[in-house]
Amino acid sequence: MKLLKLVPDDTNIKFLKLRVPFFVLSLVLIVGSWTAVAINGLNFGVDFAGGQEVRMTFTKQAEAPIPSLRELVGGLGYGEPVVQEFGAKNQVSIRVALPEGAEDTPGAATAIGDKVIATITKSYPDARKDGNDTVSGKVAGEFRDQAILALLAAMAAVAAYIWVRFEWQFGAGAMFALVHDVSVTIGLFAVTQMEFSLQIVAAILAIIGYSLNDTIVVYDRIRENMKKYRKMEMFDLLDLSVNETLSRTVMTSLTLFIALIPLLFFGPESLFGMVAAITVGLFIGTYSSIYMAGALLIWMGVTTNSFVPTETAVDRQEKLARGEG
């Protein structure tokens, strides 16, 4: 049986030739992502913005009466509600923001939630409540703080681990790759204005773990090759390492990718944003593993001799004893 080989044997792609344009591209992506966040902002869901979100199904109608709902809920005096289709045509999610100053009145959010649901079910008795999330301003603020803290802590911990297992340059390279992957994923949410919720932060935290898997495989091979080919030019060594591991980089990303795609299209609607974030993060992570992981090492002055242990007095004596000195 002839086995499938997605990446041909003995590739010799000069990845590092393109390191400058790709590095510039990455910088542009990072800066662009944060610019998008600054301009568009993130479309925070109730988790982070506070307020309340109701999901309803109109059991006796083919299509949810979205304009009428907008008017109905808008008339309650809590500002313009966000009413959108969710899953099927007769399902909607309705989001109402917290009024000004509600941060200090903990019960305000749930009171609004109850009122919205009561108003809708009064006008549409066939409306079935599928779910209801109400988050007070205080709790939402805590979620925001926790999210930022968790992201920074996870990135720092992962980079520190790489530093301990390899060298500081590798840790710094991994950190850059992480900043890159996380920024671009967040940027995607700023551009598309998909809802940014707790689940999305969970997805990004997962990306922090998984996007580095490829980077680690490449780094591991670089380290191995540095011991093996002491005379080789650093450029060639990096290219060799990336090429040697190319097949497994592609395969490991691909297996996760094909597992995620059905979940994206056939899975529960409420997981779409989360799975989309992981899929994109995975993609970006593979790119940064191939292009950024090695190139950064060169810029940080790593040479083939960087990590050769310096000769100690004992080594010297042993050499002399063998008659090599």
Partner: peptide, 25 residues
């Protein structure tokens, strides 16, 4: 300060779709 309610139909639907996606994947 926080309230989340999920209807039983939505949950059952999520499990069904999740299992389907898991199977295909």
């Amino acid at each position: 300060v926080e309230e989340r309610t999920v209807g039983p139909d939505l949950g059952a639907d999520s499990i069904r779709k999740g299992l389907l996606a898991m199977g295909i994947g």
